[in-house]
Amino acid sequence: RLIFHPDPRAKTSPMEILERYTSRGMIDVDIWNATVVLGDAALSDERYEAMNPKQQTDYFRGRQQEFMRKCFLQLHSEGKWTWVTAHDIDEYLIPNQHVQAEEAIRIEVNGAADEATHPSRSSEAAIAESGTPAAAGSLPTFEHITMIELLELGRQANISSTLSSPCVGFRRFLFGARETEEDIAASNSTVFEGMPTAWQQSKFITYRWNWRIPGDGTAMGKGIVDLSRVRPDVDLANFRSSNPHRPIKTICPAAQAWRRARESPLVMHHYIGDQQQFMFRDDPRTGMKVTRTIETFEKNKKESTALDKSAHGWLSGFVKDVGLERATALLEGVGESYHTQRRRRR
């Protein structure tokens, strides 16, 4: 299930690509424009451009917060979704493979309680559903568990208050545009995890960019929430109920946005892309326009010194899941600009 809110200034629509999935019954998609999100409060391009930077920032953030709140309300009303996250299209959420499971989620070992600070809203119910909390030794390694399996394990078994919380926080890693000669050679390969394909690795940002800024995360984290434990009338009462770093404030404590990466069961990779991709977009937030400069791009590139390929592996799994023929159709034109794809089809 996907609800997408494009930039109001966008000149193209993602539906041309998303329809490949919706037409095959693989995903249900809604695209909400500013009018759907804000109603009569939505501004025309002329009124927006007439604003000063502070007003544009406030409008941007207000639209963002209201979009998130209405998304949660819509998905909750549908009554069939549990874990929901809101993030940008250049951010990828994966199980955290950088640490051992016991360190990452502070599982109870030999009777010692974990040290997480935010208890589950329904921890007693979670224990009752599963019988007893899972032992640390029974956990699968992070390399062999999906994100949803990890979250459900925490919710049902109550193995850690970090994982059993209705809002699980995670940190973000920023990947700069650093490429070594070995990286460039690998990016020209069409073999993914030993599987020959028709695509070059360089067409996928999760395979092309493998160097990130080291440390515990380069920006405020975000969170993923369990809608089955959300009270809409209390938790989503007004537009201030949500923001990108605390998806639902009543259940997402402020401290979770700064959780150390080695304590996060999940981690988000943020890819800034190549120079053209980085410089193409502007940012309506006050003071942010000057950050999309060549100096900032080169700084991120220089500071990306930690090799990290933990996002690899998904493509071969995707092909095995849907089949090569369908995967080829779904990924047609991957890595190409919109205009390149249009020219190729003429």
Score class of each variant (00 low, 15 high):
P8T: 12
K11Y: 13
S13M: 04
P14D: 14
P14V: 06
I17A: 11
T22I: 12
I27W: 11
N33F: 00
T35F: 01
Y48H: 11
E49I: 09
Q55W: 01
Q56M: 06
D58V: 09
R61V: 12
R61W: 10
Q64C: 06
M68K: 01
R69E: 01
Q74H: 14
H76C: 02
S77F: 00
T82W: 12
T82I: 08
T82Y: 11
T85N: 05
Y92T: 07
P95Y: 07
V99K: 02
A101Q: 14
E102Q: 09
E102V: 10
R106Y: 12
E108F: 08
E124A: 11
S130C: 14
P133N: 09
A136H: 14
E143F: 15
H144I: 13
T146E: 02
I148S: 05
I148T: 05
L151T: 01
G154P: 04
R155C: 06
Q156K: 15
A157H: 15
L163M: 07
S165K: 08
C167P: 02
C167T: 00
C167F: 00
R178S: 04
E181D: 14
I184L: 14
A185M: 07
F192C: 12
M195E: 03
T197C: 02
Q200G: 06
T206F: 02
W211D: 10
W211S: 13
G215P: 04
G215I: 03
I224T: 01
S228Y: 02
R229N: 04
P232K: 07
D233E: 05
R240N: 14
S241C: 05
S242P: 03
I251Y: 00
C252V: 04
A254N: 10
Q256F: 08
W258S: 07
A261E: 10
A261P: 03
R262I: 14
P265E: 04
Q275S: 12
Q277T: 12
M279N: 09
M279V: 09
R281C: 03
R292A: 06
T296Q: 10
F297C: 05
T305W: 13
T305A: 07
W314H: 05
L315S: 04
G317N: 14
V319Q: 03
V319C: 04
D321G: 08
G323C: 03
A329G: 11
L330D: 05
E332L: 12
R343N: 08
R345A: 09
